[in-house]
Nucleic acid binder design. Structure first.
Length: 425
RNA sequence: GCCCCGAUAGUGUAGUGGCCUAUCAUACGAGUCUGUCGAGCUCGUGACACGGGUUCAAAUCCCGUUCGGGGCGCCA
């Protein structure tokens, strides 16, 4: 019966069997130690030559990162962990080649490129694994929250006929004898689900953007956590968003203390204030800090840096000018909209809004943005037979992971990032 | 789409026209060692991305190619 490395301490003075990777080998003339690592952690295994010469020989000639199974008695010892396994049975399940393309526990760090090229090895590092354990907690927390609050999980098509929002570039795909695109966002479909009467939906799914951006916060394929709610306004959507983030960071703190420590997050913040700053205020703040922004112009990265400076904190930017937001965003007045962004420092985490629910206004907005109304017919139709008022938003899972863990590059928060130059591994 | 930068052993680096037969660490290999845990010690293997040019002389300067990193725009 296999025991995980982290569980060995609960089986002292009994025979245990562990399976995993040989992380380190330290040999003396007649005693050999190996650190065996699995998903839970690592444990020291020891063999003395005089007690078992053949195992001793086999152990000392192993290559690092080979996969083995070892049986023996778990005992208290002078090992750093306070216990170890005295191996009496041992089997190599698969040898590793040497030297390794990158060291799993070496003193020297590798470049991000080397790491991503050899991601299977990079991911063996307990610290890197921790990122994805935390990401798992986040997605579990948001799912749990949604299910507890009346949301239905849905799946919308990722192959679409045309651009949904304009603006961003799409990846074309061949669809039999027609051309189609990879979906940039489930926006139109989750709104149609409001017309369908599902009341509240969420979807956690990939989104594809064909922009040739080359930054530490953009991916060409990312995971979008999308929601849409009927009969609510922008304020309620922001309240739900705030709760979702609080609930997930709380669960991370509760369940991932070991991982947070490995990642160097010693005192995770819990009391985010979720201040609301209007677009107009943001323009003023940026200009006061010497970053010129004209009223009505989009907030540039330097402007967002100035606004987010020193704010190690989530905050909303609300009341965006209508002309800066997509056609489906509900107007607030002549000039402003009910669209909002959630920022963490300079990074945009979420974009959301109360949506237009009146089909005439929708058509007017489409025309005003220069979009082809005909190609949105399937969508507009859903508005013409009883569409409730609704609001929603989308969070980038990788971006959320990134800011909660203070990662410097979004690729760190993705197993196999798809960026400007990478489609493999 | 625009702009900037980089490429030296498996990994990460030093190097600024001659002292480079290329530094150091780590990894790897051999040896040594009964309690290691970043093991120690001895010895060894191993690299200037590719192509052209300048020069008496190029890792170093120039041009091109390839690969990569980053900033802006845009966005999650």
């Amino acid at each position: 019966m296999r025991v995980l490395a982290a569980e060995v301490k609960n089986h002292l003075n009994t025979e245990v069997e562990v399976k995993g990777w040989v992380q380190a080998i330290r040999t003396g003339g007649s005693i050999a130690f190996i650190d065996l690592r699995d998903v839970s952690g690592h444990v020291q295994c020891v063999v003395a030559k005089k007690e078992n010469a053949s195992i001793f020989e086999e152990l000392r000639t192993l290559s690092r990162e080979s996969v083995i199974e070892a049986k023996g008695k778990a005992v208290e010892s002078q090992a750093k962990q306070g216990y170890e396994i005295q191996v009496n049975k041992f089997k190599i399940l698969n040898k590793s080649l040497a030297p390794l393309p990158l060291g799993v526990v070496d003193m020297v760090d590798s470049d991000i490129e080397t790491r991503l090229e050899n991601r299977f090895l990079d991911l063996r590092k307990p610290k890197i694994l921790s990122i994805f354990k935390v990401q798992d907690t986040i997605s579990r927390a948001v799912r749990q929250y949604f299910h507890q609050n009346g949301f239905i999980e849905v799946r919308t098509p990722k192959i679409v006929a045309a651009a949904t929002e304009g603006g961003t570039e799409l990846f074309p795909v061949k669809y039999f004898d027609r051309s189609a695109y990879l979906s940039q966002s489930p926006q139109l479909y989750k709104e149609i689900m409001m017309s369908a009467g599902f009341d509240r939906v969420f979807e956690i799914a990939p989104a594809f953007r064909a922009e040739e951006h080359n930054t530490t916060r953009h991916l060409n394929e990312f995971t979008s956590i999308d929601i849409e709610m009927s009969f609510v306004d922008d304020e309620e959507a922001m309240r739900v968003l705030e709760e979702v983030i609080k609930v997930s960071s709380k669960m991370v703190i509760e369940e991932n203390s070991k991982e947070l420590e490995l990642l160097g997050i010693t005192s995770p913040k819990t009391d985010y204030s979720f201040k609301k700053i209007s677009y107009a205020e943001c323009v003023k703040i940026a200009n006061d800090k010497g970053i010129k922004v004209d009223d009505g112009e989009d907030l540039s990265t330097p402007a967002l840096k100035a606004i987010g400076e020193g704010l190690n904190e989530f905050y909303f930017i609300t009341r965006w000018p209508r002309k800066l937001k997509p056609f489906y965003v509900q107007p607030f007045d002549e000039k402003y909209s009910r669209g909002f962004d959630l920022q963490f420092g300079e990074v945009e985490i979420t974009s959301g809004a109360q949506r237009v629910h009146n089909p005439e206004i929708l058509i007017k907005n489409l025309e005003a943005k220069g979009l082809n109304v005909e190609s949105f017919e399937f969508y507009i139709k859903a508005f013409q037979y009883g569409m409730p008022p609704h609001a929603g938003w989308a969070i980038g899972l990788e971006r959320l992971t990134m800011v909660l863990l203070n990662l410097q590059n979004i690729r760190e928060a993705t197993l196999f990032p798809r960026d400007r130059t990478r489609i493999t591994p």
